[in-house]
Nucleic acid binder design. Structure first.
Lengths: 332, 332
DNA sequence: ATGAAAGCGCTAACAA
DNA sequence: TTGTTAGCGCTTTCAT
């Protein structure tokens, strides 16, 4: 293994000088710098990251915690983070576990081991608040993405879930729908709650009665729920369903079709997120677009800023959603 | 920050003893061990990973290189890796970049920096062979997953792409189809080549003429290609299309529907991979299932073994595919 | 079974 | 502008 000593020897300078040119931390005479650079190239030297980390307490790596890598919502967010992190010579470490608790404790351990310089937390559920507080009190650079936290003051970048849902509902109402059902996602998720509230308020403002069903954030649950809904006589027939995520909208639409009904002729459907397959020709889902890539980029940028300027006050960025009108909503 | 010295002091032992109990590397008197453990708990001590890494040249982290995290094929593979790695106290670092070259050089840099203890490479294209060879010569623990390499002897775990494609083609032929078109994926990918060969051989064996079209591994390209195919008069009408990945099959099916034809009544379609949405009710794609999760698990296991037993000869695991018959293929 | 101490490769304080 | 050197927190050799 080639070390800084080898470079120093070959270039006829001290290890300090090598370090200076490596990190640009002090002016170095051009001749010496040249020699050092040549030596580095000749021996194909790469600084050891553990040694660096031990000295400087920085590892150039930041952690991204997501609930489920399998959920097509996250990869783009991760990509966004990665793009800006990479530009700044940081590496992204992804933490993803179906067991919420496991995941957080893992990350906290790594933080305490000094492996991470900062973390980005994506869409945790409200039950994590305690862990979050602990992290916050450690004063460890952390930003929350895609989640709004009322009770705890942490940096965050989120999407305006409320107004996206409000706009989506208004769209349906504008089309003449009155009996609009909302499928909510995972119960504890603030994202779901905000979206639900946007829907409820839009309904009430228009003198309509909100009606919430459980979609549990999954295709399957939404599918069965829809089946039940359609076959339940006591249910006044809904003319539109607002699914609080695209995945759920897919389940809804598939169930509708199974029953010999069609979207949007019999039932209008609107989703939320705008996953990549929502624009496919066979789907053409009208939905509320969430700028996931941008969310990731902004989160990473904010984190980087915090890491360089610890004293800065807390930031709360809110990105806007966009209603994407495709072909799953008809006027009544 | 709590260090090993603090523990040693509090427990009235040497730092060596603390290290021994921490790593179980030497027998320690039960009394002392108890004291040490109490001290660790009391001070809430966690060993610093950089210091450990510097000393022991191990970082308990391994890298997974994938082409595109956005491709729904990979998350499950990553999950599989993560599951076994986590059980063995390793962390997974995901490298994913659309620019192939960038990605590899990044990983190689990290290897040389000593950040990684091993790497798993997923589905690279043939143009990476040089980088791969370099890695191989470094004798750095590496396993290739979902890729078959002829010219270079590296550990690998792959799926039997050839026979999966062969079986899929036979299925179509068994249904009476003769005019079966194969949509190939990304050109340089060995995976695509193997699948194509399986198709070609099955066709020839049955006295049929193979016909390959470019699907480029994407929904869009397959969509347009299918449109062209259907509207091209010179093309004798195909009765079945074998897409070498599900994503491409989706594009094919959507294009077919756009033309007023239907699957499987007018054209049978079969995919490859079995992505999560392939089983959705509106899709029900007949496909060749690739055990992605298992692929990841086996790759991680193999890597771990290599890391502990460097001298072991090269391993080449081949997992089997499974033909999943759903509803997109009709008898002719 | 245990402790003293060297040293992993690097950065940066201090001295020149 | 440059060099000497201490020391980051840990593992492990050597001695006991």
């Amino acid at each position: 293994m080639v070390t800084i000593k080898d470079i120093a020897k070959l270039a006829n300078v001290s290890t300090a000088t090598v370090s200076y040119v490596l990190n640009n931390t002090r002016p170095v005479h051009p001749d010496k710098e040249k020699k050092v650079r040549e030596a580095i190239k000749e021996l194909n030297y790469v600084p050891n990251s553990a040694a660096r980390g031990l000295r400087s307490k920085k590892n150039q790596t930041i952690g991204l915690v997501i609930t489920d890598i399998t959920n097509p919502f996250y990869p783009n967010l991760a990509k966004g983070c990665q793009e800006v992190l990479k530009q700044n010579d940081y590496t992204l470490m992804m933490y993803n576990s179906d067991e919420q608790h496991d995941q957080i404790s893992n990350v906290v351990r790594h933080v305490r081991e000094g492996k991470l310089d900062g973390i980005i937390l994506a869409n945790l559920v409200t039950t994590d608040i305690d862990n979050l507080k602990a992290l916050n009190e450690l004063n460890f650079p952390t930003v929350i993405v895609h989640r709004n936290l009322k009770n705890i003051n942490m940096d965050s970048v989120v999407v305006d879930n409320y107004s996206g849902a409000h706009a989506g509902t208004e769209h349906l109402i504008g089309l003449g729908h009155k009996n609009i059902i909302f499928f909510q996602g995972i119960n504890e998720s603030p994202v779901t709650i905000e979206r639900k509230n946007g829907y409820i308020d839009a309904m009430k403002t228009n003198g309509l009665e909100p009606c919430i069903k459980e979609g549990k954030g999954s295709y399957q649950a939404s599918y069965s729920q829809t089946l039940k809904l359609i076959n339940d006589e006591s249910q006044k027939n809904p003319t539109a369903i607002f699914a609080s995520s695209d995945i759920m909208a897919f389940g809804v639409m598939d169930a509708v079709k199974t029953q010999g009904l069609s979207v949007p002729e019999d039932i209008s459907v609107i989703g939320y997120d705008d996953l990549f397959m929502s624009s496919w020709n066979s789907i053409q889902l009208t939905t509320v677009r969430v700028p996931t890539f941008e969310l990731g980029k902004q989160a990473a940028r904010l984190l980087l800023r915090k890491m360089n300027n610890d004293s800065e006050k807390k930031n709360h960025l809110v990105l806007q959603t966009e209603l994407i009108i495709r072909k799953t909503c008809n006027p009544l």
